[in-house]
């Protein structure tokens, strides 16, 4: 009896601590969220870019998938949903490469990195949560309204296994953040990593499935991608959404995603620890 009270006290204490820590990181998210709100012109321009891409892909697939044709399991109805969500997902990709990879480079150059190293917070989590603030902004102000509009005007399939889909979307974002953090760390090794950032953005767009569903790629590429984390960012969550994967397969995806999140974040943690030893700050 006494032991169980002690254990529960211990657990409570740790939960309280974790919550207090989490609250600090959530404030980093909030800062990014509020910051995003202040750029209005940018907001509408990006929205236009999105609509153009989605409308073009919509008509393209409408032309390809006439008369009830189905390519590798994708009907027109699937594709309409797929391109609409893939279109808004580009905001996420931009946000991660911007708020994580590019931001890390900027902080390295301006010395803001040092400022963050002087605070008793984890730099990796700070950077992650910073990006989550932007993700939340995009979800609330772009993705939800745009998809609602799309659903009313064009039509959108309702998701299968909503809970599994949402979980896999969150885990996908964490996989994405893990990759972006590793890419951002390249700034410690090269003087200008903008080329690397552009290349990875393109790779992520191609290999995460935001351009076309991955099954449409040649067989050798599809099998290669089974060993890479990129498909878990977008393609696998979408497969769950569209009901191409059953409940068991969906849960298997969640497990694989969790492994990748853990692996990438751990790699990021150790690589960062190693990288900051290379910092050379000149001036005095």
């Amino acid at each position: 009896m006494r032991v169980s009270i002690l254990i529960s006290l211990f657990v409570m204490e740790n939960l309280r601590k974790s919550w207090r820590h989490l609250r600090i990181y959530i404030r980093f998210s909030k800062i990014r969220f509020v910051d995003k709100l202040s750029y209005r012109a940018h907001f509408f321009l990006v929205l236009t870019e999105y609509l153009l891409i989605v409308i073009v892909s919509y008509f393209l697939w409408k032309a390809i998938l006439t008369d009830g044709r189905v390519i590798r399991g994708y009907s027109l109805k699937d594709m309409v949903t797929y391109v609409a969500i893939a279109g808004v997902f580009r905001f996420f990709i931009n946000e991660f490469s911007g708020a994580i990879s590019r931001e890390m480079g900027g902080q390295y150059r301006t010395g803001e990195l040092i400022m963050n190293l002087l605070k008793p917070v984890s730099y990796q989590l700070y950077i992650y949560f910073h990006a989550f603030g932007g993700i939340l902004f995009h979800s609330v102000f772009r993705i939800v309204p745009v998809l609602t509009l799309w659903a009313l005007l064009v039509g959108l399939t309702a998701p299968d296994h909503l809970a599994i889909f949402l979980t896999s979307l969150v885990l996908g974002a964490l996989v994405h953040a893990g990759i972006a953090f590793l890419v951002g760390l390249t700034i410690f090794y090269v003087e200008d990593n903008s080329g690397i950032l552009h290349a990875t953005s393109a790779i992520i767009e191609l290999l995460s499935g935001t351009l076309i569903p991955l099954v449409m790629y040649p067989a050798w590429l599809v099998s290669t991608m089974n060993y890479l984390p990129f498909r878990f960012i977008f393609y696998q969550p979408m497969e769950i959404y569209l009901g191409h994967l059953g409940k068991e397969a969906g849960i298997a995806v969640l497990c694989a995603q969790t492994v990748w999140v853990f692996a990438l974040s751990t790699a990021g943690y150790f690589l960062f620890k190693n990288s900051i030893q290379k910092i050379t700050i000149q001036g005095g």
Binding site: L117, L118, I279, I281, G284
Partner: peptide, 17 residues
Amino acid sequence: NGAGKSTTIKILTGILT
């Protein structure tokens, strides 16, 4: 200038190894 003051401070504050 450039004597190593800031470097020492940065080591003491944990930024530099």
